[in-house]
Amino acid sequence: MVQRGSKVRILRPESYWFQDVGTVASVDQSGIKYPVIVRFEKVNYSGINTNNFAEDELVEVEA
């Protein structure tokens, strides 16, 4: 279970941040499909630095 402030590695192959490390900004408990919002240092092609992920697409590298 990841929690706010954890450092996580992204396992979603189609993601711009695949294999990159980001910080968990928040975790939604309402039961949505992609409840974990992760914030990154670098921006993607659209200038965005956050994205939603499912918990099984993340691996915690640092608490």
Rank of each mutant, 00 (worst) to 15 (best):
Ser6Ile: 07
Met1Cys: 14
Trp17Gly: 01
Phe53His: 01
Gly22Lys: 03
Val38Phe: 02
Gln3Arg: 14
Trp17Met: 01
Thr23Asp: 03
Leu11Ala: 03
Ala63Gln: 12
Ser26Ile: 07
Glu55His: 15
Asn44Gly: 06
Gln19Arg: 09
Val2Pro: 10
Ser26Leu: 10
Asp28Met: 11
Lys7Thr: 08
Asn49Trp: 07
Gly22His: 02
Pro13Gly: 05
Glu41Cys: 12
Asn51Asp: 15
Gly22Asp: 01
Arg12Val: 07
Asn52Asp: 07
Val43Thr: 12
Glu14Met: 08
Asp28Gly: 07
Leu58Met: 07
Gln29Met: 13
Phe18Thr: 00
Ile32Trp: 07
Glu55Lys: 09
Pro13Cys: 10
Ser6Phe: 06
Asp56His: 14
Gly5Asn: 03
Ser6Ala: 13
Asp56Met: 07
Lys7Tyr: 09
Lys7Ile: 11
Phe18Ser: 03
Thr50Val: 12
Ser15Arg: 00
Tyr34Gly: 04
Thr23Trp: 08
Ile37Gln: 14
Pro13Tyr: 09
Val61Met: 07
Glu14Phe: 08
Leu11Asn: 06
Ala25Glu: 15
Leu11Cys: 10
Pro35Glu: 07
Thr50Phe: 14
Arg4Gly: 06
Ser26Trp: 14
Ala54Met: 07
Leu58Asn: 02
Ser46Tyr: 14
Val36Pro: 00
Ile10Lys: 03
Arg12Pro: 08
Glu62Gln: 12
Arg9Asp: 05
Val36Phe: 13
Ile10Met: 01
Ile10Leu: 05
Lys7Met: 09
Ser30Met: 06
Asn49Leu: 05
Asn49Gln: 07
Arg4Glu: 13
Val38Leu: 01
Ile32Arg: 08
Val8Phe: 01
Arg4Gln: 13
Gly22Trp: 09
Tyr16Thr: 03
Glu14Arg: 08
Ile32Ser: 13
Met1Gly: 14
Tyr16Val: 04
Tyr45His: 15
Tyr16Ser: 02
Gln29Ile: 11
Leu11Val: 05
Ile10Val: 13
Gln3Asn: 08
Gly47Tyr: 05
Pro13Arg: 13
Arg9Ile: 10
Pro35Gln: 07
Trp17Asn: 01
Tyr45Arg: 13
Ala63Ser: 13
Ser26Arg: 11
Glu14Leu: 09
Pro13Phe: 10
Asn51Ile: 07
Ala25Ser: 10
Gln3Asp: 04
Arg39Cys: 14
Ser15Pro: 01
Lys42Phe: 08
Tyr34Trp: 10
Lys33Trp: 05
Glu14Val: 05
Ile32Pro: 07
Glu57Gly: 04
Ser30Asn: 08
Ile37Ala: 13
Asp28Val: 08
Val43Tyr: 15
Val2Trp: 11
Ile32Phe: 05
Lys42Arg: 14
Thr23Phe: 07
Pro35Phe: 11
Arg4Thr: 13
Gln19Val: 06
Pro13His: 08
Ile32Gly: 14
Val27Phe: 11
Leu11Gln: 05
Arg4Asp: 05
Trp17Glu: 00
Asp56Lys: 06
Asp56Tyr: 14
Gly31Trp: 07
Met1Val: 11
Glu14Ile: 06
Ile32Gln: 10
Arg9Leu: 12
Val43Asn: 10
Gln29Gly: 10
Val27Leu: 07
Phe18Tyr: 13
Arg12Met: 04
Glu62Trp: 11
Ser15Met: 03
Gly47Ser: 04
Glu60Lys: 10
Glu41Arg: 08
Asp20His: 12
Thr50Lys: 06
Phe18His: 05
Asp28Lys: 05
Asp20Lys: 09
Val27Gln: 01
Arg9Phe: 07
Val61Gln: 04
Lys7Cys: 14
Leu58Gly: 01
Gly31Ser: 08
Val59Lys: 09
Asn52His: 11
Thr23Gln: 07
Ile37Ser: 13
Glu41Thr: 10
Asn52Glu: 08
Phe40Ile: 02
Leu11His: 04
Glu62Val: 11
Glu60Ala: 12
Gly22Phe: 05
Thr23Gly: 02
Ser26Gln: 09
Glu41Val: 08
Thr23Ser: 04
Asn51Thr: 10
Leu58Val: 11
Asp28Arg: 05
Arg12Thr: 07
Arg4Ile: 15
Lys7Leu: 14
Val36Asn: 02
Glu60Gln: 13
Val43Pro: 15
Met1Thr: 14
Ser30Phe: 06
Asp28Gln: 08
Val21Phe: 06
Ala54Gln: 07
Phe18Ala: 02
Arg39Ser: 09
Ile32Lys: 10
Gln29His: 13
Ser30Gln: 06
Glu55Ala: 12
Val21Lys: 03
Asp20Phe: 10
Leu11Phe: 03
Gly47Arg: 01
Glu41Ile: 08
Pro35Lys: 10
Asn51Gln: 15
Val2Lys: 04
Val27Cys: 06
Arg39Gly: 02
Val27Tyr: 10
Lys33Cys: 11
Thr50Leu: 09
Glu62Leu: 10
Ala25Ile: 15
Tyr45Lys: 15
Val24Lys: 01
Val59Tyr: 08
Val27Lys: 04
Pro35Val: 11
Ile48Val: 13
Ser30Tyr: 06
Asn52Pro: 07
Ala25Met: 15
Trp17Lys: 01
Ile10Glu: 03
Val2Asn: 03
Thr23Met: 09
Gly47Lys: 03
Pro13Thr: 10
Phe40Tyr: 01
Arg12Ile: 05
Val43Phe: 15
Asp20Pro: 01
Val43Ile: 08
Ala25Arg: 05
Phe53Trp: 02
Leu58Ile: 12
Gly31Val: 08
Val21Gly: 02
Met1Trp: 15
Lys33Asn: 09
Ser15Thr: 02
Val8Met: 00
Val2Met: 10
Asn49Phe: 08
Ile10Asp: 04
Glu57Ala: 03
Arg4Ser: 10
Gly31Lys: 09
Asp56Ala: 08
Gln3Glu: 08
Lys7Arg: 13
Val43Arg: 13
Glu14Trp: 13
Lys33Pro: 14
Arg12Leu: 05
Asp28Thr: 06
Val21Ser: 01
Asn49Arg: 08
Asp56Trp: 15
Val21Ile: 13
Gly22Ser: 01
Arg12Ala: 07
Lys33His: 06
Lys42Glu: 07
Leu58Tyr: 03
Glu60Asn: 09
Asp20Asn: 09
Gly5Asp: 04
Gln3Leu: 08
Gln3Lys: 14
Asn49Ile: 05
Ile37Asn: 12
Val8Arg: 01
Val8His: 03
Glu57Asn: 00
Gly22Ile: 08
Leu58Thr: 02
Ile48Leu: 13
Val43Met: 12
Glu57Lys: 02
Lys42Gln: 09
Glu55Pro: 14
Ala63Leu: 11
Val61Asn: 05
Arg9Gln: 10
Glu55Asn: 11
Lys33Gln: 11
Asn51Tyr: 12
Ile48Asn: 12
Lys33Leu: 11
Ser46Pro: 05
Tyr16Gly: 01
Glu55Cys: 14
Thr23Pro: 00
Lys7Phe: 09
Gln3His: 11
Val36Gln: 00
Trp17Val: 00
Phe53Leu: 00
Lys42Thr: 14
Asp28Phe: 06
Phe53Val: 00
Asp56Thr: 09
Val36Leu: 04
Val59Trp: 08
Glu55Tyr: 15
Gln19Lys: 10
Ala63Tyr: 11
Glu62Arg: 10
Thr23Glu: 11
Pro35Leu: 11
Asn49Val: 05
Val43Ala: 14
Gln19Thr: 05
Trp17Tyr: 02
Ser26Tyr: 15
Phe53Asn: 03
Glu62Met: 11
Val21Glu: 05
Ser15Phe: 05
Ile48Met: 14
Tyr16Cys: 05
Val24Pro: 01
Val8Leu: 00
Glu57Arg: 01
Glu55Met: 15
Asn52Ile: 06
Ser6Glu: 04
Ala54Tyr: 06
Ile37Arg: 14
Val36Arg: 00
Glu57Gln: 02
Leu58Lys: 00
Glu14Tyr: 11
Val27Ile: 14
Leu11Ile: 10
Glu14Gly: 13
Arg4Leu: 12
Glu60Gly: 07
Ile32Met: 10
Asn49Thr: 06
Arg12Trp: 09
Gly47Thr: 01
Arg39Ala: 09
Val59Arg: 08
Asp28Ser: 09
Arg4Cys: 13
Val36Tyr: 14
Phe18Asp: 01
Gly5Cys: 11
Tyr16Gln: 03
Phe53Arg: 01
Ile48Asp: 13
Val21Tyr: 07
Leu58Ala: 01
Val36Lys: 00
Ser6Trp: 09
Gln3Gly: 08
Val21His: 03
Val36Thr: 00
Ser6His: 07
Ile48Trp: 09
Asn51Ala: 15
Glu41Tyr: 06
Pro13Asn: 06
Val59Asn: 07
Asp20Gln: 13
Ala63Val: 12
Ser30Ile: 04
Ser46Trp: 14
Gly31Glu: 10
Trp17Thr: 00
Ala63Asp: 13
Phe40Gly: 00
Ala54Cys: 07
Ala54Asp: 08
Lys7Trp: 08
Phe40Leu: 00
Phe18Lys: 00
Pro35Tyr: 10
Leu58Gln: 01
Tyr16Asp: 05
Gly5Ser: 01
Glu60Tyr: 10
Gly22Arg: 00
Asn44Tyr: 05
Ser46Ile: 11
Val38Lys: 00
Ile48Ala: 13
Arg9Trp: 05
Pro13Lys: 13
Lys42Ile: 07
Tyr45Phe: 13
Asp56Cys: 12
Ile37Thr: 15
Phe18Met: 01
Asn44Lys: 05
Ala25Val: 15
Asn44Cys: 10
Gln19Met: 15
Asn51Phe: 11
Arg4Phe: 05
Arg4Asn: 08
Arg9Val: 09
Thr23Arg: 04
